[in-house]
Design a protein around this nucleic acid. Structure first.
Lengths: 186, 186
DNA sequence: GGACTAAGTTAGTACTCAATAACTTCCGCG
DNA sequence: CGCGGAAGTTATTGAGTACTAACTTAGTCC
């Protein structure tokens, strides 16, 4: 396998492991084991653990941005906003993407490398700009949209059952998505 | 100092340290140093690191619950809801309370002890019930309220500057609170 | 076929960290 | 005074962990 292909599979493994146990809770050993490669070899492909984490973060943001862009393609206004919401609920059925997002929110504050924190901020506001640019939504609509999304993230991360009262305010599509997340075997 | 007083100061230190670097990123050494006590002595006061984390989590939930209760005292309906929102924005000026909350959302999923995950879920839904019980708000109002809160948490955790477009949809009180959080020297 | 290179390994190092064991200090009380 | 207990310490251990150095294997091109 070429180094570039390996790097790709390492990133995918890093996304999974960092999503589940966070930066400090994840050993490079765990990532290597998932890839099926020796642990020291990771350091041939990436300069260090931080670079692995950053690559995983980048992948996570890329996927979300692409999801938003694709959903809104050929649409505008309220239709685009609704499509993006729907697409997002599909995206986070991948529990690792969801959890890595949550990990990034805390990682930004405690990042020993300020450049990483800055990167996370820039990418996150980038998502905001995508939604705003594609929908032309008002500030209030945007905070409503992202607030709604953050609450879903939190409920899923916490593992609040779909039958719980906390899910009452959500529409059927959200609940179906949530049920599917929980059905995922780990 | 009595063991009980020490335990109290240890919990306060644990809240700070776990909030800043998470469960795995925090060493018991760091907590002990903040308390001004030797590291092994922590294990006389608490059975292990997990117990420290749980005590910190408990403290964090207690403070939030008390804040909600106090704000809504003698009020009801929309007034109570607004008072709770206002009180919350004051609470999270304590950046450690804010960040520990964020840490808990990821900790629940990766907790090696399922009882801890369950505890976090129970306490979180407990907050939901407090707000619902004191205000009688509809399901949609509740998801709006908590979604709004979660978005604020995220923006603050990421360190998005108050001048940023992401803050546009928030009222003046929120922005003032945010500015104060950032003004906090660490 | 032999040299070069890319992909990958094993062995090892220096360090950190949670937890234990055994010792010390000091206060109150008879 | 002396003694018991509570509040703390130092020393240590054993298990991880990020990362380095040096070696191996296999395909490719001349």
């Amino acid at each position: 396998m070429s180094a570039e292909e390996r790097r790709e599979s390492v990133i995918r493994a890093a996304v999974v492991e960092f999503a589940r146990t966070g930066y400090h809770g994840t050993s490079t050993e765990a990532i290597a084991r998932r890839v099926g490669v020796s642990q020291p070899y990771l350091f041939r492909l990436f300069p260090g653990k931080q670079a692995l984490f950053r690559a995983a973060a980048e992948r996570c943001f890329d996927r979300t941005a692409e999801t938003f862009e694709a959903a809104a393609a050929g649409m505008s206004g309220a239709d685009a906003l609704e499509a993006m919401g729907e697409a997002y609920s599909l995206l986070i059925r991948d529990r690792d993407v969801l959890m890595l997002q949550m990990q990034l929110y805390t990682a930004a504050a405690s990042a020993e490398d300020p450049e990483l924190a800055d990167f996370i901020r820039r990418r996150w506001t980038g998502l905001w700009d995508i939604v705003r640019g594609r929908t032309g939504a008002s500030d209030e609509e945007l905070t409503g949209f992202f607030g709604h999304g953050m609450l879903i993230n939190t409920l899923l991360a916490l593992g609040i059952p779909v039958e719980d009262r906390c899910w009452n305010g959500f529409d059927g599509a959200c609940k179906v998505a949530a049920a599917e997340v929980y059905a995922q075997q780990r």
